[in-house]
Design a protein around this nucleic acid. Structure first.
Lengths: 199, 199
DNA sequence: ACCTGAACACCGTTCAAGT
DNA sequence: ACCTGAACACCGTTCAAGT
């Protein structure tokens, strides 16, 4: 939304903005509470320039995190082309889990800076919601999940992913959570893909 | 754990500690980033006294939040006496949701202060895990949920509760989430309480 | 039009002096 | 044994002066 300005940024200003985002990604991943002044310094800009681009910590973190999440979101379309809807959904969830673990430091920064609800929900209006919508629609039409589920339902259901410590054996915990969620999504579906006949 | 000291606190010291916790509850609920100095002042103690009791922000918030969560946890035993296991489980989840909404300000403070994973998981080793264990065991034995579920599974599954904005129509969102989770827990159960016969 | 960096305000934390 | 409150350090934010 902010991405389009009336006047395009002066080239040097644009360079500055990009460098800040670049440094912020590495620095915030390393330490969620990295001082903004450090980021400004490493990016080679003054404090004023920093604040011109990002009026507060939250604005910076949101933008960095949003970009990272966009990466996963974009894979949904591709998966829907090469798999059945329910395979695509599950595999996308697995990728999301991997991303969430890789970007856990950032998520931490997000939690700290944003006082609001939905560190994720913020991204809700972004690409993630679009991806989830696509996946849910495809599965609903295929009858592999219960009808009437909303992207919001889904996002809330997988919120536990961001509670998992990426340093300590996260894979089984994530798998168990996602299995549980998948079962929840399937309950009441028209077709039950796992067991066509009760016996 | 820390609750037992070798020497009991001097009476005035104990009063101080209690007053700090009291003030912290109201103050942190109002604003998650309330200055510790303000809390100290309103509690009528000096900075030093404050830091003697709580070496950092996280220690304070954890203790306040833990006490609040204990309240809900304690209701599990009672529910298990007066209802069937699956009714008890669901009703407990509803109460947890209410508590989570009422204490959302605190949860916010917790997210901000603790850099670690599991704002909730921290409380994991506390009374909440015990309550969840009781409820899951009772339901597993009654055959109303799938066998083998751990308290950790459950806590991750309901993590979305803390993502819901308590100011904006939280009830339907929470209900939909909890319905989904219940379906997930039931999938693969020995008895299916909702529909005894497929038709 | 954009940048720099010193200056200011605020909050967490420590510690010398008190009872 | 515990308390007070001034002092220190650090970080976010602003703004006068520069290009």
């Amino acid at each position: 939304m902010q991405d389009e300005r009336s006047t395009p940024l002066r080239p040097d200003a644009q360079r500055n903005r990009e460098r800040i985002l670049e440094v912020a990604l590495t620095e915030l991943t390393r330490a969620a509470d990295a001082p903004l002044s450090t980021i400004a310094k490493k990016a080679g800009v003054g404090q004023g320039t920093f604040y011109r681009n990002f009026p507060n910590r939250e604005a910076l973190v949101l933008e960095v995190y949003r970009y990272e999440m966009q990466q996963v979101a974009d894979t949904a379309v591709q998966l829907l082309r090469s798999r059945t809807p329910d395979q695509a959904l599950r595999e996308w969830m697995d990728r999301l889990a991997q991303y969430a673990m890789a970007k856990a430091g950032l998520a931490d920064a997000l939690r700290k800076s944003t006082g609001r609800y939905g560190s994720l929900a913020q991204l809700g209006h972004g690409p993630v919601t679009r991806a989830v919508t696509l996946l849910l629609n495809a599965n609903e039409q295929a009858g592999t999940i219960r009808p009437g589920l909303t992207p919001d339902d889904f996002v809330l259901a997988i919120a536990g992913l961001w509670q998992i410590d990426p340093h300590r054996d996260w894979q089984p915990r994530a798998k168990r959570l996602l299995d549980l969620v998948m079962d929840g999504l399937r309950a009441g579906a028209i077709r039950s893909p796992g067991r066509p006949e009760p016996d």
